[in-house]
């Protein structure tokens, strides 16, 4: 069901390219006004999802709604309201960066001149160079300036900072925060950079092999993370091994190391104190760990998944 509060709703999207199953029942909901992180390992289907949103491709099955319209049939009206930065920016070899920015802005229905110049300045971009002479990061900047200088209500950014140096990445973060705070705009941000996602996003969707595996607010996701414990004990803590929610338990001498789900933390600590704690180091949960777990399991289960599909 499409409601006023959703900028993007996609449900059960399926898309295959010959033998490759790029999307396999993907769900994605982006609410109006939020910055939504879109994560997944290489080849997970992020760019394919975005291309479907832009009406460049048609899904084999499933539904997609964009800003209350159909992304395949209503491209003209919908695209007036969005700006897009592709994952791999290519520019016209004979057009200067400034010309490309202006052209894209005008096609979108005009761009904010003052803002354009300000962004060029901030991103430290030379707009006079010809497309073919830009480095990868500078090509990325051209597309970013063109998108961020627009007044579009929805920004679709596909790995927008790939190739940017750390300083420029910081500029990007600040700019997105400003843009979003000022206009309450919606941003769909596909990214592999976890710190960027943590800093910018309100909600996150993680996909793998064309399927949504996790979706929720940052707080909800944090809840899924695990605390790591490194403790020196007076006696053996035999109960730990059988405890659900304890992962990767390793013990040698009097030391134990493990990570534990938020839900099982209390029980695990009880076991430790029962054995007698001499010292204890605990690391707070990070999202990074959660992401890596999802990225990792992809390769572990990829074989099984494909075998399943073949059958």
């Amino acid at each position: 069901m499409m409601t006023e509060t959703d900028a993007i709703t996609m449900a059960g999207l399926v898309k295959s390219f010959g033998p490759t199953q790029a999307l396999n029942g993907l769900d994605l909901v982006v609410r109006v006004g939020e910055v939504h992180g879109f994560l997944g390992p290489n080849g997970a289907g992020k760019s394919t999802t975005i291309r479907i949103l832009l009406g460049l491709m048609r899904p084999d099955a499933g539904t997609a709604r964009l800003l209350g319209g159909d992304p395949w049939t209503q491209t003209g009206e919908l695209h007036r309201r969005l700006a897009y930065v592709p994952g791999d920016v290519t520019l016209w070899p004979n057009l200067s960066g400034g010309e490309a920015i202006d052209l894209l802005g005008r096609l979108r229905g005009g761009l904010n001149r003052r803002r354009r110049d300000e962004l060029i300045e901030r991103f430290d971009l030379d707009p006079r160079r010809k497309g073919r002479t830009y480095s990868k990061g500078n090509r990325q900047k051209v597309a970013l300036v063109a998108a961020l200088a627009s007044d579009a209500e929805l920004l679709i950014l596909d790995e927008p900072t790939s190739g940017l140096d750390p300083l420029m990445e910081e500029v990007f973060r600040q700019t997105v925060q400003e843009v979003q705070r000022a206009g309450g705009r919606t941003v769909l941000l596909s990214s592999h950079i976890l710190s960027e996602v943590e800093a910018l996003c309100d909600r996150v969707t993680i996909i793998r092999d064309g399927r949504t595996v996790e979706s929720g607010t940052m707080a909800q996701l944090r809840h899924l993370t695990r605390t790591s414990i490194d403790a020196e004990l007076a006696g053996p803590a035999d109960g730990l091994a059988g405890l659900p929610g304890v992962h990767g338990l390793r013990g040698e001498g009097g030391r134990v190391r493990f990570s534990v789900d938020a839900a099982a933390l209390d029980a695990a600590l009880r076991q430790l104190t029962a054995a007698g704690v001499r010292s204890l180091v605990s690391r707070p949960p990070t999202l990074e760990e959660l992401f890596l777990r999802h990225y990792d399991r992809a390769s572990a289960s990829a074989g099984g998944r494909h075998a399943e599909a073949a059958r």
Partner: peptide, 26 residues
């Protein structure tokens, strides 16, 4: 060698046709 271009687009470069002309004219 490729030379530097203008910092912004001229007033006419504002439609797909104008872009196509830029690409095809050479």
């Amino acid at each position: 060698q490729a030379r530097l271009g203008p910092a912004g687009a001229g007033p006419r470069l504002s439609s797909p046709l104008a872009l196509a002309w830029r690409l095809h004219r050479g």
